[in-house]
Each structure stands twice: as C-alpha cells, then as structure tokens.
Design a protein around this nucleic acid. Structure first.
Lengths: 301, 301
DNA sequence: GGAGGCTAATTGCAAATTCTGATGCGCAAA
DNA sequence: TTTGCGCATCAGAATTTGCAATTAGCCTCC
C-alpha cells in the first residue's frame, strides 16, 4: 500500500522502448500495448520522478535532459532483471538436494576441500552436509542410508556397499624413542614381543593392525584401546608402546624426533582409502555426480 | 501481454523481505500487506523461475539453495531501483532549460570547453546550444534575446547589454614577408602609407582596426574587405597588404616565417574579450549560473 | 485557408491483477 | 488433547491496467 516507491519494471521497459523509438505509438506496437497504455505508463513514471521524461513534439517525443540522465539506469535495471531470469533458467535443470557425506581421519587427506568445491561449482544447487566419524560407523550409516556416501579406510567392507578406491595409504610402525635402540631394526618376531598400543575396534586402524599382526604371525600384548590418532601419538611419545600410524603422520612426527620409526619408516602394510555408497544406488544420478567429481580430484580414469 | 517476463519489482521486494525475515507473516507486516498476498507473490516468482525459492517449515520459511543464489541479484535490482529514484529526486530542484550561447573567433580562446563542462557538471539539466558568429551579430542576437548570452570582442558594446570582462586580447600588425624589409620597424606614419587589408565591418577586428587607425592618426588605403582571420592570413602571406591579427595567431604563424610582425610582435592595441547578456536579465538565475561558472574558469573574483 | 495525415492526450468502460478476510491444515509445544 | 503459530487456499472486493473510440494539436499539401 504505502511502499518506498511504486515504479515497476514494466514501466521502465516502456520508458526504454519509447526512448529508443521516439514514438509512443511505435513503442506501443513493439510492446504489444495500446498507445493510451504507453501514455499512461510514461505519465506515471513522470509523476513519480517529479519531472517530464520526454518532450512532446508533433511527430513524436524526445528525451528531456533529465530523461537522458535517467535512461541508462533504467536500462541497467532491465538488464539485471533479464540476467536474474536467465540465471533462474540456467538453474532449472540443475540437480538439487541435500547430500550427506561421512568423513574419516584428517579431512585434508580425503581432498575434501577441492572435491566439494568442484561439486559445488558443477552443481550449485547441491547442499552438502558432512559428518565426521570412524570408518565403521560411517559404513553403517551408509548402509542404513542415513548418509548418502562416505569414506572408508580398509578393504571390501560389505556386500551391499559399493566402493570407488581412491588411493592407498601406507602405515608404519612407530616406536617410542626409549625403545628405538632395541627395536629400530628388529624382525617381526621381536616386534611382536614389545608392548603394543591397542586400537578401538571401531577405528579403521583396528582392522589394519589386526591384519598386520595376522599376516606377520604375531600376537602382541595390548596396552589398552584408543581411538584417536593424536592420543596414540601422545602415548607413543610417552613410551607406553609401539603402534601403527599412517605413513604421513608418522613421518611428520618422526622428523622432530619425538617418535622413532621402525626400519626407518618402511611401510609395514597398506590399506585402500575408498569412497563408499549403498550398492542399490549404483545408478543413482547423485552418486554419479559425486563419483565424477571425485575422479577428477583424485585423477582417476 | 506477451512480454519477455512478468517479474516485477514489488515481487522482488517481497522476495527479499521474506528472505531476511524468514517468515511470510512478518514480511507481510513489514510490507503492509496481508499474508496471502505475500504467499501469492512468492508463488508467482517461484512459478516464473521454475523452482521453489523457499522451503516451508512449521515456524517459518528458509531459502533454498536456488533462493540463496538468486537473492543477491534481486537485492541488486532493488538497490538500483532505489538509486534511480534517488537520482530522479536529486534532479528535482535542478534548474533546467535550453541555453543559447553565441561564440566568436576560435572557441578554444573562449575556454568554451572547460566552461561548458563545468556548467554541465553543476547543472546537469541545462542543455546548451552554441551558435558561432562575429561579434556584431552575436551582440544583436543577445539584444534580440534570440541568444541568452554570448561573447564579444571589443569595448562597451551597447547600453542595454551588460558585460563581464574576461580577459584582454592583444593585437599585432602582421606584415607580408615582401614588405618586412621596409616596414619592420617603421613608424605609424609610414605604416599608414602601406596597403592595408580591410576587415568586414561585422567582425570585431573591424572596430579594433578602426580604433587603432584613429588613435594613431592614420587612414590607410584598404585592399578589399574580408571577414575571416584565416582569409586574412592567406592574403598577408600572398603579399597583398598588412593587417591586424590577434597576438596569439600572429605569433604562431610568424614562427615559421610565413608572415612577419611589425616591431617584432609589439602589441599595437588591446581589446577586451567580454561575456555579454541582456541588461534586463542581470538578476536572472540562469545568467547567474553562466557567470558563476565563467568566473571559475577564468579565475575571476 | 481548408483537408488530410500524423501523433499524443483523454475518456469511459472492460479485463486482469492484486489484495483481503475467512478458513483450513500441519506441526510443535504445553 | 489442546493451543498457538505459520503457511496455503478460496471467494469476493478493490485496485490497477488495458483497450477502443474520440479529441486535440501540429504540420503539410493541395
């Protein structure tokens, strides 16, 4: 009722058209309007602006100085309106919806930033939510479809979950400085006799440690169970025992001497980092987009 | 009827308000509208855009991803609309109208560019027309009010015309190279015996030449009558006779030797360059603006 | 000087739109 | 279960917008 202003786009369109035609009649034709309608619209604008926009001559109209100054702004508004509508149209076919992704470990190692950035750029209407957790819980949520997809560290997790392997992550055996003297180059049998830091069974490190022990035929004594890499790290530094650490973490902390690495950082075992999603959604367009962006970020075929 | 688009500003205003309020009801109150009206406007926009702009929750609405992307553009359009209206308002009180100005001689010497630029900047609704002529005809048109004002070269032109003196222009006696030998340092009596190029009586040069001859008590023989400085110049070069030239023009052409100057370019007479306007309009606001801008450009008090 | 042609303004009425108030529905908190 | 809040829907009212016909002003051409 009592707005800021009453001016509307259709009036500006008429203003611009009349300005470029120089005739109310011709403008009316172009706009599929009658001449009185054009007259009325121009009149309404002139009233709102408090000044005439055109000088009326026999044979047509001509912009006043004020009209010349206001015309570019009107054109600008029209242009932006078209742009807005164009943007809307370009968004029409875009896939939309919320995507829930489960992350694990250090997000940077998942290349989560570049991945989501690319996804967002390609499909601006996708809104993405991430939930951080350990591999096992992420796997369960993907199976239950509480999550659309997630990351998993380890081998073939489950029958009804499909995977896209992204990379392999190497693991080293980290030693406390106090034990480095006797264990730095020990064989597996000797390592097995050292105290090991146990890992919570929900973490992917658990499976990896377990697989390592089985393959090397050792069954070391476990000093508790822990579920975070940073906790593990502190305990190694404190000399409580040896543990398996991701290669990159291990090397970073080994560099300042706070921990030591068995055999100079030899990779003891590898585990695949995988993208996982419900097998039922193999042909889902959304999953396809997620995988597509992942392939680009991880340089996969 | 069948436009490009139907979207209107009032819908965008509602869109933006709803977006920042998060409630159709509150937005309706702010906009002095009923809630169904707001609902309908948002619905119309959503239909035109081909996608929902808000997600409806119990307790309010929230922008969709598409809405988030389109909102800034809508705000932009609203902002520009306000700017347009603001510009119109700022133009409301501005003096407007056509100003007809008579110019003479070389426009650059009148500082016409800087003057009109300044005028235009201060009073954007003034539209200026210039007519070029000789001093006498400009004077007549100013008296007849066919021109609002003009420039005049010479002294107190007429009773019912007021003046604003701008500067003084010096004049030299220009000699053909052929006559330079005998006349270069001649006295006035000798100069008076040489052939002179007459000047059309409508040009300001005529008055000046006449005044010069009277004051020096000479009555030279005239070789025709000419009304353009450039014509005069050619005739001097061709050796037809001597003539009075504006100092600046004279020096420019003397520099390359195509003409010579009496007594090395001594100023023989001076004449004021004046801004003239009808005495009846001394207190006219328009004349005041013209004079104001002139004073600034010419550094007058 | 008058007729005809061109263009904009005006007027009365019809059509379309926008707005409102009442009502219904869904959800959440009491 | 009830109450409260907020959005959707609907029918009718109010406003706006548009059109056809006409008028009025100006110019040109007979």
């Amino acid at each position: 009722m009592t707005y800021d202003f009453r001016m509307e786009i259709y009036q500006l369109r008429t203003f611009v058209t009349v300005a470029q035609q120089g005739h109310l009649t011709q403008a009316a034709e172009l706009l599929h309007l009658s001449q009185p309608a054009v007259t009325a619209q121009i009149k309404a604008l002139e009233e709102e602006f408090g000044m005439p926009l055109f000088e009326r001559y026999p044979g047509g109209v001509q912009l006043t100085e004020a009209g010349k100054l206001l015309l570019p702004e009107a054109e600008n508004i029209l242009g932006l309106s078209r742009k807005l509508l164009h943007k809307a149209k370009s968004l029409q076919g875009e896939p939309r919806g919320k995507v829930r992704i489960g992350t694990i470990g250090v997000p940077a190692r998942l290349k989560i930033g570049p991945w989501l950035a690319r996804l967002r750029q390609r499909h601006p209407l996708l809104s993405i939510e991430t939930t951080h957790g350990v591999s096992v819980s992420i796997l369960n949520e993907v199976r239950k479809k509480t999550l659309d997809a997630g990351f998993y560290l380890g081998r073939n997790p489950y029958q009804n979950v499909n995977t896209l392997p992204l990379t392999e992550i190497g693991f080293c055996v980290a030693l406390p400085p106090q034990l480095a003297g006797e264990l730095a180059n020990a064989d597996w049998k000797e390592l097995g006799k050292a105290p090991w830091l146990g890992v919570s069974q929900f973490s992917s490190l658990a499976d990896i440690t377990q697989e390592l022990c089985r393959s090397r035929n050792i069954a070391p004594q476990k000093v508790g169970e822990f579920d975070e890499e940073s906790t593990l790290l502190e305990l190694i530094k404190a000399g409580l025992g040896v543990a398996v650490l991701a290669e990159r973490t291990a090397k970073r902390y080994a560099a300042d001497g706070s921990i030591m690495l068995w055999r100079g950082g030899e990779v003891a075992i590898r585990a695949p980092l995988q993208f996982i999603y419900s097998a039922e959604r193999e042909d889902d367009a959304l999953i396809g987009m997620l995988k597509g962006a992942l392939r680009q970020v991880w340089d996969l075929p």
